[in-house]
């Protein structure tokens, strides 16, 4: 089989993932697009492992490791998304601008997990002041 077929499919999958990461607003859809990009890399690893007939099976073993790391990544990512949802009542990555340089429209929130519920209360109260 020609090597170009899996390489082209992987390149197209990667660009679709790039589009999804850049164009989507929902944080879960961004995570799905990251999964697509990781899968493109996995396809490349498997294809080149088969091409070179690696005796140590480095490509396929690295693919297994990448799948495991992707599972850990999506678990942690969803935990973070749920925490953001609990504090802000939305997971819109365009409106999470607390870390931006210019004056952010989002209100300040407390530091750490202990301020989470109070920050949500401040958001509900109209977003006037910082939760202390």
């Amino acid at each position: 089989m020609h090597v170009a077929y899996p390489a082209v499919v992987a390149a197209l999958l990667f660009s679709v993932g790039v589009y999804g990461v850049l164009a989507r607003r929902n944080a879960i859809l961004v995570l799905m697009s990251v999964e697509l990009m990781l899968n493109a890399v996995n396809l490349n690893l498997v294809a080149f492992d088969v091409w070179w007939r690696d005796r140590l099976h480095g490509g396929q073993v690295l693919t297994l490791f990448t799948i495991v790391i992707a599972a850990a990544e999506v678990g942690l990512g969803l935990a973070i998304v749920l925490l953001v949802y609990r504090n802000r009542r939305m997971i819109d990555v365009d409106r999470l601008r607390t870390l931006s340089e210019d004056a952010a429209p989002a209100p300040e929130v407390g530091d750490g997990d202990a301020g989470g519920v109070r920050a949500a209360a401040a958001v509900r109260a109209g977003g006037k002041g910082a939760a202390t």
């Binding site: 390149a11 197209l12 990667f14 660009s15 679709v16 790039v18 589009y19 850049l22 164009a23 989507r24 607003r25 929902n26 859809l29 819109d92 990555v93 365009d94």
Partner: peptide
């Protein structure tokens, strides 16, 4: 209706260039 960000055309250009 609001699943796509406002910069989707820039994202499309970047993705097409990458592809």
């Amino acid at each position: 209706a609001d699943l796509d960000s406002g910069n989707r055309w820039a994202a499309l250009a970047v993705a097409l260039a990458t592809a």
